[in-house]
Write a protein that binds this DNA or RNA. Structure first.
Length: 274
DNA sequence: TTTACTGTTCACCA
DNA sequence: GTGGTGAACAGTAA
C-alpha cells in the first residue's frame, strides 16, 4: 500500500508532532509484530526515551531516540500510524501503542499484520530490517540514469521487476512503477538489456517527477488520513494507468490492459508502451 | 463461497 | 549466478 511518497508524507506529518516528545511507556498489544528485539525488551528500551527526529529510507520510517537508538517501522501493505488523545477508542487491529508525555498516543494499527518494527541500539549494525540492502534513494545525487543503466543494462529481467527490486532503487512499489512505465512509454515486460540510453534517461526523470508529484498531492489528502478522520488515503483519480483496466488510455484512447509481471498486477497501454 | 490484494522473503525450478 | 513463479504472512472486500 504505502510506497515512498506515502512514507515521506507520513514522516513530514509526524515530524513536528513527535519531535521532543517523550515515550512514557509502550504497550505491545500483539508481540509478533516486533521483529527485533522481542516486544518486552523493545518496550523497556524505548521507555522514557525522547524522540529526536524522524527520517525515511525507501519505504522504512526511522525514528531516532535520545540514546542514539533508532526505531524502524515498515508499514508493508496495510499498516498505519495514528496520533490521538489516550481516551480515543482503539481502532481495530491496533497492535502497538506508544504513550507520550503530552497525554496523546502514537498507535500502530495494521489490518493484515504484515508491518514490522525493529529497534537498533546506537551503533548497532542493521542486519535485521532489510534496510541495509536498499539501493539509492530516488532523490539522492547518486541516483541517475547512468546508475540505472550500469546496474541493469546487461540484465535479462523485465523492467517492471527491476523497478520493484528495492536493491536497485529504494521506494518504488507496484502502483508508481506502473505509472513510471506508462509515462516513459515502456512495456512492463521489456527486458532491461534492451532499453536504450534515452529510455534510461526518461526513466530516471519520470521516477523523480512522479514520486515528487505524489508527495505533493499527498500533503493535503493524507492529513485527514493520518489524523484518523479518514479511513483511506488512496485517490486513484490522479493515477494515469494503475487500476484502470479496460478504461481508455488518457493519452491515446486505447484500452488499458492488465497482465501479471513479477507476480504482480501490471496495468499498461498496449498502444503507448512497447 | 471464492478470489484478489498496493510488500517482502523464501523455496524451487529452468 | 540470474530470473521467473508461487507460497506464505492475515484479513477484508468485491
Amino acid at each position: 500500500m504505502p510506497e515512498l511518497p506515502e512514507i515521506e508524507t507520513t514522516k513530514r506529518f509526524f515530524e513536528p508532532i513527535l519531535c521532543q516528545r517523550q515515550i512514557v511507556k509502550m504497550t505491545a498489544v500483539r508481540p509478533e509484530i516486533f521483529a527485533y528485539p522481542a516486544a518486552e525488551i523493545f518496550g523497556e528500551r524505548v521507555q522514557a526515551q525522547q524522540i529526536q527526529s524522524l527520517g525515511r529510507r525507501g519505504k522504512y520510517l526511522l525514528i531516532s531516540l535520545a540514546d542514539g537508538a533508532t526505531l524502524i517501522l515498515h508499514l508493508r501493505m496495510t499498516g498505519r500510524l495514528l496520533y490521538c488523545p489516550s481516551a480515543t477508542p482503539l481502532m481495530p487491529h491496533t497492535h502497538c501503542i506508544f504513550h507520550l508525555d503530552d497525554g496523546n498516543e502514537l498507535r500502530f494499527s495494521d489490518t493484515r499484520r504484515f508491518g514490522r518494527l525493529w529497534l537498533l541500539a546506537a551503533n548497532e549494525e542493521d542486519t535485521f530490517s532489510g534496510a541495509q540492502k536498499l539501493g539509492p534513494e530516488p532523490f539522492d545525487a547518486v541516483f541517475t540514469a547512468n546508475h540505472l543503466q550500469q546496474k541493469l543494462g546487461q540484465r535479462r529481467a523485465t523492467i517492471k521487476s527491476a523497478l520493484l527490486d528495492q536493491s536497485n532503487l529504494a521506494g518504488l512499489g507496484n502502483i508508481y512503477a506502473d505509472e513510471v512505465l506508462f509515462q516513459t512509454g515502456i512495456h512492463p515486460q521489456c527486458p532491461t538489456g534492451e532499453l536504450q540510453e534515452e529510455q534510461w534517461l526518461a526513466l530516471a526523470t519520470a521516477i523523480q517527477e512522479i514520486l515528487s508529484q505524489a508527495i505533493e498531492d499527498n500533503q493535503s489528502r493524507m492529513q485527514d488520513y493520518l489524523a484518523g478522520s479518514s479511513g483511506k488515503y488512496n485517490d486513484n483519480q490522479r493515477l494515469n494507468v494503475y487500476g484502470r483496466e479496460k478504461l481508455e488510455c488518457k493519452s491515446c484512447g486505447a484500452e488499458i490492459q492488465r497482465i501479471q509481471v513479477a507476480g504482480r498486477s501490471s496495468f499498461f497501454c498496449p498502444a503507448c508502451q512497447c
